[in-house]
């Protein structure tokens, strides 16, 4: 038996040389870079350790949330939700018109495709916090600049998502509609959107979900809603009210998060 095994082994071809595994190299390089950063920026973990006690003291000030103005907070949360909803609506409308131009299989011209793709990239690259600052300066305080900022930033996202879904539409479906003589808008409406309707609704819900979270923060730069109120109470060192506001925001975000996850599951 042993003899046979040996014989068998010697007649089997040796394995080809093992390919190089680059993971350890990359891991070491990453660790070295992280260490260099800590050294260079003088990030001191001792401060963190010594600071724990101070931080605990600071957080304890939020211990007694003050819900006396709850109805006002809920109204403000409503404004924030409305901001997010309108921002998403702007994005949806813009993406609806831009995405087909940015999908290789639908676009009327390769140059149009290139230009619209770049426009979408640019929109995506502008952080919404920065956009909100610009719009607040231009339009004044309130929910409108917030909605615009969210709209511009997320049009870039939705436009790209939709365009990529459109590009995955089966070529045979596109040809079936094109072969009847349908023109660009007709091809988009008959071969394009119906084929990606579910996917597109899923993306839109995800963007709405994200915009609700972001709209709460945008208030901090003056774009209305509950964020603005939180900004004010924090400035006044009113920890009770701040705590209540934070809790309202957290609860809303959790609810929206679960609702949108549930809806998206239903869609797919």
């Amino acid at each position: 038996m042993v003899h046979d095994l040996k014989l068998g082994r010697s007649s089997v071809e040796p394995l080809p040389p093992k390919p190089h595994n680059l993971i350890p190299t990359w891991l070491i390089a990453t660790l070295v870079i992280l260490w260099l950063i800590v050294r260079d920026l003088e990030i001191s973990f001792e401060t963190l350790v010594y600071g724990v006690e101070d931080m605990a003291e600071y957080f304890s000030r939020y211990g007694q949330p003050d819900f006396t103005h709850l109805s006002r907070y809920l109204a403000l949360m409503g404004v924030t939700l409305a901001t997010a909803l309108w921002g998403t609506m702007f994005a949806l409308i813009a993406a609806f018109f831009l995405a087909p131009l940015a999908a290789r299989n639908f676009t009327p011209h390769p140059t149009t495709y290139r230009i619209v793709r770049e426009v979408l990239n640019f929109m995506r690259a502008m952080p919404d916090l920065l956009l909100a600052l610009i719009f607040v300066a231009a339009l004044g305080l309130g929910p409108l600049p917030g909605a615009l900022a969210l709209g511009v930033h997320t049009s870039g996202f939705l436009g790209k998502f939709f365009a990529e879904s459109l590009e995955r539409v089966d070529q045979s479906v596109c040809e079936g509609v094109a072969a009847t003589g349908a023109n660009f808008p007709q091809r988009v409406m008959y071969a394009g959107w119906p084929s990606i309707l579910r996917e597109a609704s899923g993306y839109t819900l995800y963007i709405l979900d994200r915009n609700v979270r972001m709209a709460s923060v945008l208030g901090l730069v003056g774009a209305g809603g509950i964020g603005l109120a939180l900004h004010d109470t924090l400035r006044l060192f009113d920890y009770g009210q701040s705590a209540a506001l934070i809790l309202v925001i957290l609860a809303t975000i959790l609810i929206i998060d679960h609702a949108s996850a549930w809806l998206r599951r239903r869609l797919t």
């Binding site: 045979s172 479906v173 040809e175 079936g176 509609v177 072969a179 009847t180 008959y190 071969a191 119906p194 084929s195 309707l197």
Partner: peptide
């Protein structure tokens, strides 16, 4: 008009 092997209808 054209008729295809895979029918090429819009499924949805």
């Amino acid at each position: 008009a054209m008729i295809f092997q895979q029918f090429n209808l819009v499924d949805r």
